[in-house]
Amino acid sequence: MAIKQSELETLLKNAFPNSVIEIKDLAGDDNHFSAKICSSLFKGKNKVEQHKMVYKALKGKMDTELHALSISTEEK
């Protein structure tokens, strides 16, 4: 299990254009990241829906290739 930070960033940027995306490597093992996303796409969605949008952006890589992702979402 592992994914490059650059790949994670590309996946999120593709799903959340014109958004603020901050990714932090939490353990230096390409397996534990945090992602803070501020996007207008979250407008009107509750937290579960917002986080599901983030998981969807990862195209099935969550918990298969990427072990841990701490997610924080904000409406812009």
Binding site: K47, V48, H51, K52, Y55, M62, D63, T64, L69, S70, I71, S72
Partner: peptide
């Protein structure tokens, strides 16, 4: 739950979210 990670919290059968939420 259409949610790929653990933990998952349910309150009165309703999915509330994971650890971050």
């Amino acid at each position: 739950s259409n949610w790929p990670t653990i933990p998952q919290i349910y309150v009165k059968k309703e999915f509330i979210g994971g650890s971050d939420i």
